[in-house]
Computed example of a mutant assay.
Amino acid sequence: MGLKNLLGVALAFALVASGPTPAQASAPVTPPGTPQAAGTQFLSAATVDLAWMPAATGTNPIAAYEVYARRPGWTYPDQLLTTTTSAWVFVPIGGLRPATTYQLYVRARDTSGLPGPASAPVTITTLPSDIVPGPPVATDATATTATVSWRPPAVAIERIAGYDLIVPSATPTQPIQIRTSMGPSTTSAQLTGLRPGTTYTFIVVARYTDGTPRSAPSTHGTVTTAPSVPPSPPSDLTVTTFTPTSATLSWTASAPGDFPISRYYTYVNGGALGVPNPGPDVRTVTFAVSPGSTYEVYVRAVDQAGIYSAPSETFTFTAPGQ
């Protein structure tokens, strides 16, 4: 082979060797794992509370859980009922028809939109609408009280033994709370001891006399109490007494808002002071200090409804050295 041909072969080899490197194969993307249904509660004519265990995370974080329903024997596409970020809590699922059998399942979807496998289905049959009371509705609400009422089920009153107003449990391991029980002819309840500016969720369960299952609940209803005027912040913070190891803090009383003052909470360097919280007629606390250390203290009042004032102005001092 001549010198010219040898140079041509060498040049071609060099061009091939210096060409682009083939792209490395990307790692496979793993979808989220399979959620596991943990149970249901309070099946009504149109709703049910469903809980599930969280799915294992795949390559990307889980963005949401999707709850679907299919009706056995139907050829229609499965229905997306709700999308939520919750797991291991009871999620109210609506959009169901009375006296209808459904298979509910859950799947996780990650932040890239990739769905994971569907959970095993949970089969439910919603109740006939005539045995289910209407949801509780607030007819009057103050800062700490509310009157709620509901529509009775469309059955003869002789079949009704009474009603329970229930706070649904949040998780599968938390017990339900029966707020009050009423007789068969009473379809309203007066609630007391509520917190101002707070939304509560309730359901009404009808109890029957003829062997009908007790689980005949309404759909969820909410009650929101009125906001309350909080106490004013304590004022005039000062240290009145020093010892080598303690300081005594005093302040001027807060003005009550809608409710009387219950006690004062004191804080030092961003945390609780660690001493008993004085009642409304005591406006001084003594606490331990270290010589030469600097302290930032403030006080808040709380009233008998559990409403806190804004913090007082922060008072800063340095304990004297020994």
Rank of each mutant, 00 (worst) to 15 (best):
I203C: 05
W150F: 08
D130C: 06
S181R: 13
Y102T: 07
Q190A: 12
E158Q: 11
P136T: 02
R97M: 05
A189K: 00
T219V: 15
V148T: 03
P168E: 15
Y102V: 09
A138Q: 08
G183L: 04
M182H: 00
P121C: 07
T180F: 01
P227N: 01
V155H: 01
D210W: 01
A226P: 00
A99K: 08
V106P: 11
S218A: 04
A138G: 06
P196L: 06
T145P: 01
I124L: 08
A161R: 14
P117E: 07
Y208L: 14
P121T: 08
S119R: 03
V205M: 14
R195K: 05
I157F: 05
T125V: 10
P184M: 07
I131V: 14
T139W: 02
T212K: 04
A141M: 02
L104W: 08
T222R: 02
P230D: 07
P231K: 11
S232W: 02
L165C: 03
P231A: 11
G95I: 06
T225G: 00
P98E: 03
Q103T: 04
L191F: 03
P98C: 04
T171V: 13
S215F: 12
R109I: 15
L191Q: 00
S112H: 07
L114Y: 06
I166D: 06
A206Q: 11
M182G: 01
A138S: 12
G116W: 10
I124F: 03
S232R: 07
M182W: 01
P153D: 00
G134I: 02
G95Y: 05
I157E: 14
T225S: 01
R97S: 12
A156V: 12
T222E: 03
R195S: 15
V132F: 03
L194E: 00
